[in-house]
Amino acid sequence: MKKVLLLLADGFESYEASVFTDVLGWNLYEGSKNTAISSVGMHKTLRCTWGYSCIPDYQLTEINLDNFDALAIPGGFEEAGFYKDAYSEEFLNVISYFNSRNKPIAAICVAALSLGKSGILTGRKATTYMYQDEYRLNQLKNMHVLVVKEKNIVVDRNVVTSASPATAIDVAFWLLEQLTNKQNVISVKRRMGFMLP
């Protein structure tokens, strides 16, 4: 069984988290049946960007990172307090741990800033939110990242970053492919209705 750690910061965007649970869940029932996902946070209750609450499966202090094969991180909003957790030492240490073992890391939208803050993107290609202005892109660039503006999804070795919530489902399918294979992803996409039978 391939296990994914869904790392949630307070103020995360629920849609960006849900794509991972849906794609990996569909795979568990309708695909290769070999993926599991656990939501992990640093608080017993997390508030999502749009105000409702979420209870993660585990607290970060309760898990052993060695038990996980990949890391998934949704973005969130500054106004909802996202960066307080997303820039914390504990959060950044998880990112560094997965990267040091060359395990897949999938970050949606501004979650790329956590990766940049951790130092794992230094000298590597990545992207982040860019649709209102280039404020977030410039933040990422100031973290010594080779920012790519021409693509909505950027893969550099074991890491994928993306430019907006619109890319979320494709990031989740990328992660599924890293854990299984391309043919399995096609099968799951068909089952979910993203491709014709």
Rank of each mutant, 00 (worst) to 15 (best):
V19E: 02
P74N: 09
Y83M: 09
E177T: 11
R101A: 05
A9I: 12
W26V: 08
Q183W: 00
W174E: 03
V4R: 04
V23F: 03
L92G: 05
L60E: 05
G116K: 04
N93W: 00
R157W: 06
S32K: 14
S88Y: 00
T167R: 08
T21D: 03
T167I: 06
V155W: 09
G119Q: 12
R47A: 09
V145E: 02
Y135D: 11
N152K: 15
W50A: 11
R47Q: 14
T122F: 00
A107C: 12
Y97V: 02
S39Y: 05
Y97I: 03
C48L: 09
C54E: 12
V148K: 05
A168Q: 12
V188P: 10
A166W: 14
G119D: 06
V145M: 04
L71F: 07
L179W: 01
L121A: 11
Y129A: 04
Y129G: 06
R136F: 14
S187E: 13
N99C: 05
T45M: 13
L196A: 13
Y29S: 14
F91M: 06
S88H: 01
G25N: 04
V4W: 03
G76I: 11
T180P: 07
D85Q: 08
L65R: 11
H144D: 15
E16P: 02
L113M: 10
L146A: 12
N158S: 13
A72R: 10
A172S: 14
W50T: 11
A126S: 05
K2R: 14
M130T: 04
L140E: 01
L8H: 10
V155T: 13
I186Y: 03
G41N: 13
Y29P: 00
S96V: 13
A106E: 12
T21N: 07
Q183H: 04
T61L: 02
L140C: 09
L7S: 03
V40K: 02
E79T: 15
G51I: 09
G25R: 08
L8Y: 09
E16A: 05
N138L: 10
G76Q: 07
V4N: 04
H43I: 02
P104S: 01
A126C: 09
T180L: 01
Y97A: 00
N34T: 11
V23A: 02
L92H: 07
K3H: 12
Q139N: 02
V160L: 05
L28Y: 06
N27A: 08
M1K: 04
I55E: 13
M130Q: 14
G119E: 10
A9Y: 04
D85L: 10
N64H: 15
T128V: 09
